[in-house]
């Protein structure tokens, strides 16, 4: 099987999401990449070095600069004339473009796959991850988005694929890019942060929450979250809440401080890669899901931790 992988890049280098997707594609067959953009040859050169890549298609055209789905979908559809599967990372770009490609190919897309079980069989989360479905496609070609955290990164070095220029139809004349506003808050956003420090009811009041949690978060460059109990008690505003009716987060590292781990909270953070819990009560449910637990009084342990980092 020949696969075509959508490359996310910043014109110079390849984003990690791509590397995870390459790993998924390699399980299906030969990996070709598509680097589309404007002035993105350097990115194509970086992509050519990814281990296991056979070919890089480079579409360098002003119309592809912002990856507008209306413009890039026809380009991909053309390339799919000689590929069997299209894979994109399940990023906002991948989710925007892939279904448009799928519909043009008359293919039912497989979204957000977690594993490759066979040539046409995959697992994917449904019901916000409360269930995992194993699905088999009956379409001749495959269109897939890939959940990054479910696949290891392919090595960024070691390959030497050929780069082939491709021309596309360019601007479809349906849409245009107006501008972008990248989040520039001092603290990362909860839903996209790599590290989250989250506080619970045990923090007593809003001043203590501020004094204990914030310095640790600052040290780690982390976003700050809270349990519903802490939000209910008024320590922090509603938009800090992780879990039931609050946000669902999946950072690399989630540090739960003084959170007992009510199931609603667990549902909001259980997809975190590593969970660290600091709690006085050794029977707290949070320890049943924590990868690393510290049974200690948070009022001494957290400042000590902040000091030692």
């Amino acid at each position: 099987m020949k696969t075509l992988v959508w490359v996310e890049h910043d014109n110079a280098s390849v984003k990690d999401a791509t590397l995870h997707t390459v790993t998924a594609a390699a399980k299906l067959g030969e990996v070709h990449l598509l680097v589309a953009g404007s002035g993105c040859r350097a990115a194509a050169e970086a992509a050519a070095k990814i281990a296991g890549v056979a070919k890089v298609h480079l579409a360098d055209n002003a119309a592809y600069e912002h990856a507008l789905a209306e413009n890039v979908a026809p380009l991909i559809v053309d390339l799919m004339g000689h590929h069997d599967a299209f894979l994109a990372p399940a990023t906002t770009t991948g989710k925007n473009v892939a279904p448009r490609v799928a519909a043009l190919l008359d293919v039912m897309q497989l979204s957000d796959i977690l594993s490759v079980e066979g040539e046409k069989t995959f697992t994917r989360p449904i019901y916000a991850g409360n269930a995992i479905a194993t699905v088999e496609s009956s379409d001749a070609k495959l269109v897939i988005t890939v959940r990054g955290t479910a696949f290891e990164k392919a090595a960024a070095e070691g390959g030497s694929a050929a780069i082939e220029d491709v021309a596309g139809a360019g601007d479809a004349g349906l849409s245009s890019f107006v501008g972008a506003e990248l989040a520039k808050s001092e603290r990362p956003e909860l839903t996209s942060a790599k590290v989250i420090v989250s506080g619970g009811r045990a923090l007593k009041d809003s001043e203590t929450f501020e004094q204990v949690i914030m310095p640790l978060a600052d040290k780690l460059g982390a976003a700050v979250g809270a349990s519903r109990a802490a939000v209910d008690a008024g320590y922090v505003p509603n938009d800090y809440q992780v879990g039931q009716t609050g946000k669902i987060v999946a950072p690399e590292v989630y540090i739960a401080v003084g959170i007992s781990g009510a199931i609603q909270h667990l549902a909001g953070m259980k997809d975190s890669k590593t969970i660290i819990a600091i709690n006085k009560d050794e029977d707290a449910p949070i320890f049943q899901v924590a990868d690393v637990g510290l049974v200690a009084d948070l009022f001494t342990a957290v400042p000590e931790l902040t000091g030692k980092l």
Binding site: I263, D283, P285
Partner: peptide, 25 residues
Amino acid sequence: PKPDGVISFDRLTSVSYSFTNHEED
């Protein structure tokens, strides 16, 4: 007795199985 998490459970985990919610504000 403490809950064993198999037959007996803690109260907050139990409440989540009532699928209860109220508008917060």
